[in-house]
Amino acid sequence: MDRTDVEAAVFASRVSGCLLAGAVGDALGGPIEFSTLFGLRRQYGDAGITDLIYEGPGRTALITDDTQMTLFTVEGLIRFGVRIPGKTAGSAERAVLRALQRWNDTQRYFGPDELPAGDHRTGWLLQQPWLYHRRAPGAACLSGLESRLDGFAEWGRPGNVNPDSKGCGTVMRSAPFGLFATDAPAGFDLAARCAQYTHGHPTGYLAAGATSAIVHHLSRGRELIEAVSMTQELLATYPGHSETSEALRSAVALASQGGATSEKVEMLGGGWVAEEALAIAVYCALTAAETGGPAAAMMRRALLLSVNHSGDSDSTGSICGNLMGAWRGAEAIPSEWLVRLENRETINTLISDFIVALRDAPSLARGVPPWQDRYPGA
């Protein structure tokens, strides 16, 4: 295996790790999303939960809307790459919007057989019945996609859709943009624009951009603190960045003190809004890195810390998983957690296709029928 092959294999592991660890973190936090820290400790002991909670058929751990929306975002980016010249056109943003509209269909109908006809209602992911389960989707995500409004705001100004909303529904689906983009600024801008389909508050969409930029740097080999620092510098160039910048500064400063605890996590907020969710994820990842040890042990510590608090545990767990997986790769995810993840085979298939599309998207558009059947253009 030459250097190019090794680099490709490492990048593929980071892509897989980012998306799979995000799903694992989501599944860890989902069952306790509305619990308090006091309640968690009373029920599970001083450490809170220490393992997945199996609520699905066959003792599986269920994902939530966070992973559902991430999967459809990935599908939209693949379909942008597979678009057929002369037959399909448009931008990556438009491809993602149509993918998110497909996700919205899964929240409105009971299964693929009930879908009405529509030019965006195509592709294999929409045909997966298990994705039609509602897992506490965010109100702004649903109302934003129902509004059918688009168009992007000047940086720092409210967007057209839900202009006062900055919920964490933007950051929990933004990791794929960092994997997809050729550089961090491009990933930042793409994530921030696509966040505006549901959340128009500048902090909501700029925090999404920052999430994408950190993931980009990590997936290309940067160390964690370096990726965060470089993203802080990029973020500071955008009008309206102050809330997100302050949240990241607080996370870095708190992590530097050592002694990670759930009480310190809660000093950063509950994670219900975008900048808090990102800050909690960054804090938990940084403290795990500071403690060191085997990658799997760091992954376990980071993810458990990221969900054992009184806030939006599935979203903070998902984002922390995205960061840790993009940094340490798929091999760092505890295997006993992966094997119990809901419909892991479908998730793995989508990730494998995404890796192929990232590597060789131009050839996919030249007429490979299986790809055009599964991903029929943007």
Rank of each mutant, 00 (worst) to 15 (best):
G81A: 14
S335I: 04
L268Q: 13
F177Y: 13
I214H: 04
F177E: 02
R148C: 06
A12P: 01
R222K: 04
A139T: 05
D189M: 09
M324V: 07
T287A: 06
E345N: 10
R42Q: 14
G25R: 04
M69Y: 14
G111I: 14
N322S: 15
H217K: 09
R98T: 05
T60H: 02
L62I: 14
K87M: 12
P202D: 00
T182G: 06
I84G: 02
A365N: 02
A247F: 13
L131S: 10
A288E: 06
S143W: 09
D353Q: 04
E336P: 03
G22F: 07
N322C: 08
T316M: 01
L28I: 13
G187D: 09
V228P: 09
T349F: 14
A289E: 12
D119G: 08
V171E: 01
V228R: 01
N160T: 05
D26I: 12
M298V: 14
E266H: 04
A47G: 10
A191I: 00
G156C: 02
F180N: 02
L71D: 15
W337A: 01
E290V: 07
R102Q: 11
L149I: 03
A191K: 00
W327V: 13
N160S: 12
V368C: 09
G204V: 11
S16Y: 10
P202L: 00
N322V: 06
I347G: 02
V10Q: 11
S35W: 12
R300F: 09
H309T: 00
M267V: 10
R41H: 00
G25C: 15
L190V: 05
G169H: 07
L248F: 02
L145G: 06
G81D: 07
L278G: 01
L100A: 11
I84C: 07
G367T: 05
L52K: 04
P370K: 13
